[in-house]
Design a protein around this nucleic acid. Structure first.
Length: 413
RNA sequence: GGAGAGGUGGCCGAGUGGUUGAAGGCGCUGCUCUCGAAAAGCAGUAUCCGCCUUAGGCGGAUCGAGGGUUCGAAUCCCUCCCUCUCCGCCA
């Protein structure tokens, strides 16, 4: 969430961010509720002050009947005000949590279509009619969607022999790159409490829930390791002399509700996949540079795996609520001769940290909210697609790039 | 799953209804002493929220979390969470 004081002092900037994201939100209503909230707090504190005065007198002398009845009166006043405050607070929190982060300078206007290409890398010509990843999968018996559907429903799949080894090799090769960049590998719980899920902003109150939720146990299957990692440091004051950098490894479970209309062939969009995720906690003045560093690693991964890609800056209307600035790295699909999302990275500034109360001491010794950033290192669904489609040969073989071949144990699938 | 013990400030630890935001100790910061350091002494040492404000001040909240009893709760009652020990079960 945003700082309410910031919203009060920069109402116009906040309204602009909302409008540019294509959202409709009444900031004036929030400010009205906030004023009511503060009025009630002041009234409650005044009543409580009087109660405390009476109670303090009782410490030295036995309270008189008059004091006791006065105390009773104040107590009931306090209860009534408290009830009113709680109602106000519920409304206030609802409104406040809906306000998205502000938007970085240089963010293009418009929605998804306005995402702005920054640059491209790599050769895109194969020189023959390419097979798509599903055809290659059939050829080598890699991914079994029918079997997945049989036991779990559509968009689930079994990963078989060579594909298992391929993913493990991709993962190890990626770990090597990410560890060299100073990220600590961390494996996380795959289930988190609803509080943590809500705190990280992954459990919206509306109908758009994308998470598997066990109401009885109060646990949510994680959609990304970002959720337990942010939860890990909630309510902490971090030592951020140097940034804390995690490479979270976990499966990701997603409902993908309402995604059928979008491109979602085969492995591209599934209910379950594995991911290696970069996640950084840093000081406020470091987050802009850190985002570029994460983006550089994502480029490096593509380049080492010899995947043609382009980098795209995400437009205001396509930004998620916590994101201040975001880039996507898109792999080239020789099958349909276009770029598709492979990885992405965003700077959430202090938006997430404020929700979870993650702070650090700045150079003046004052407490400040940490900045958080996240970036995909590699995903078990999309990277194999990119590898299979880009590294196939005219005669149906798949030649593996060197860093992957090293762990796969062979330079050919 | 069963039985028991416990959760107090950065840490240890006292405290079972009335100046207890919380003794004492450790740590930390500043000062004194010293050529310097150590030791010793003195002083200080939380966070969040609201209000007034230039600094600063005033008020409120916080003893695992949430409810309750009471004029008054760290202290009493209820619910929940977590940690530890023992037993059981088990990859």
């Amino acid at each position: 969430m945003l700082d309410i004081r910031y919203i009060r002092d920069n109402t116009e900037a906040v309204q602009q961010s909302i409008a540019r994201r294509g959202l409709v939100l009444d900031v004036e209503e929030l400010l009205t509720v906030d004023a009511t909230r503060r009025r009630l707090i002041a009234e409650i504190e005044a009543v409580q002050g009087s109660r405390n005065t009476i109670a303090a007198q009782g410490k030295t002398t036995k309270p008189s009947n008059e004091q006791i009845s006065q105390g009773k009166e104040l107590k009931s006043q306090h209860e009534a005000l408290e009830l009113e405050l709680n109602n106000t607070l519920a409304h206030y929190n609802d409104l406040l949590s809906e306000v998205p982060n502000i938007i970085a300078e240089g963010t293009p206007d418009g929605d998804e279509e306005s995402n702005q290409e920054i640059d491209k890398w790599g050769k895109t010509e194969l020189g023959f009619e390419p097979k798509d990843h599903l055809e290659i999968s059939k050829l080598y018996n890699l991914y079994d969607f029918e079997a997945g559907a049989k036991v779990s429903g559509s968009k689930f799949y079994f990963t078989r022999h060579k594909a298992v080894k391929l993913w493990q090799a991709i993962q190890l090769a990626t770990q090597e790159i990410v560890e060299a960049a100073g990220f600590e590998l961390i494996s996380v719980p795959h289930l988190v409490t609803t509080e943590v899920a809500a705190g990280t902003g992954f459990l919206p109150k509306g109908e758009e829930n994308q998470n598997y939720l066990d109401k009885e146990q109060g646990l949510v299957l994680i959609a990304t390791s970002e959720i337990p990692i942010t939860g890990l440091h909630s309510n902490e004051v971090l030592e951020l002399g140097s940034a804390i950098k995690y490479a979270g490894i976990s499966p990701c479970y997603r409902l993908e509700a309402g995604s059928y209309g979008k491109f979602s062939k085969g492995l591209y969009r599934t209910h379950q996949f594995d991911k290696l995720e970069m996640y950084v906690f840093c000081k406020a003045d470091q987050s802009a540079a850190t985002l570029q560093a994460i983006l550089k690693i994502e480029r490096q991964i593509c380049e080492q795996f010899e995947i043609p890609y382009r980098v795209v800056r995400i437009a205001a209307g396509d930004l998620s609520a916590p994101a201040y600035e975001k880039y996507d790295v898109e792999y080239y699909s020789p099958v349909d001769q276009r770029y598709r999302e492979l990885t992405s990275c965003s700077n959430c500034t202090d938006y997430q940290a404020r929700n979870l109360n993650i702070r650090y001491r700045d150079d003046d010794g004052k407490l400040a909210f940490a900045h958080t950033l996240n970036g995909t290192a590699v995903v078990s669904s999309r990277m194999p697609i990119a590898i299979l489609e880009n590294h196939q040969t005219a005669d149906g073989r798949v030649i593996l790039p060197k860093p992957i071949a090293k762990y796969y144990g062979s330079d050919e699938l």
